[in-house]
Amino acid sequence: MNPSKLFHDFFESEKAGGLVLVFVTAVSLVLANSPWHAGYASLWHLELAGHHLAHWINDGLMTIFFLLIGLELEREIYQGELSDLKKAALPIFGAMGGMLVPAGIFLLLNCGTPTQSGAGIPMATDIAFAIGILSLLGNRIPLSLKVFLTALAVIDDLGAILVIAVCYTSSLSFLNLSIALLIFGLLLMLNRLKINKLLPYLVGGVAMWYFMLQSGVHATITGILLAFAIPFGDGNEDSISYRLQHFLHRPVAFVILPLFAMANTNIAFGSSEFSLDSRNSLGIVLGLVIGKPLGIVLFSYIGTYLRWCALPGDLKWKNILGAAMLGGIGFTMSIFITLLAFDGESVVTESKIAILVASVVSGVLGFVYLRLTTKKAA
Rank of each mutant, 00 (worst) to 15 (best):
S171I: 05
A95Y: 06
Y168H: 07
S170N: 12
F299G: 06
K376S: 06
L187I: 01
A89N: 10
N266T: 14
N176K: 00
E81S: 15
R250M: 08
V217D: 00
A268S: 15
I240S: 02
L370A: 07
T115A: 12
M212R: 00
S28I: 08
N58T: 06
L286M: 11
L46P: 15
T338A: 11
P312C: 02
I337P: 04
Q116W: 11
T220R: 14
A219R: 15
D277I: 06
A261Y: 11
L152Q: 15
H8D: 12
T338Y: 12
L370F: 04
L21F: 03
S4A: 15
L108Q: 10
G291N: 07
V357A: 09
A261L: 12
P312L: 02
L71S: 05
Y242I: 02
I133K: 14
A88Q: 07
F11W: 09
G104F: 02
N236M: 06
D84R: 14
F336M: 07
T222W: 01
L190W: 03
G283N: 15
L29S: 02
L288R: 14
Q245W: 01
L244T: 13
V206I: 13
L73E: 02
I224G: 00
V20W: 09
A378Y: 09
G295W: 05
I221D: 00
G120N: 13
F184A: 05
I131K: 13
G50M: 09
A341F: 07
K352S: 00
P200Q: 05
Q116Y: 09
F148L: 14
T125Q: 13
Q214E: 00
I161D: 01
E47V: 06
L198I: 13
Y369M: 04
E81F: 13
K146W: 07
S300W: 03
L136W: 04
A119I: 03
G18V: 08
A16Y: 08
L248R: 15
W317G: 08
V217G: 00
L48S: 05
E72W: 02
F10V: 03
G205Y: 00
S170D: 12
G60L: 02
N110V: 03
S83E: 12
L29R: 13
V255M: 11
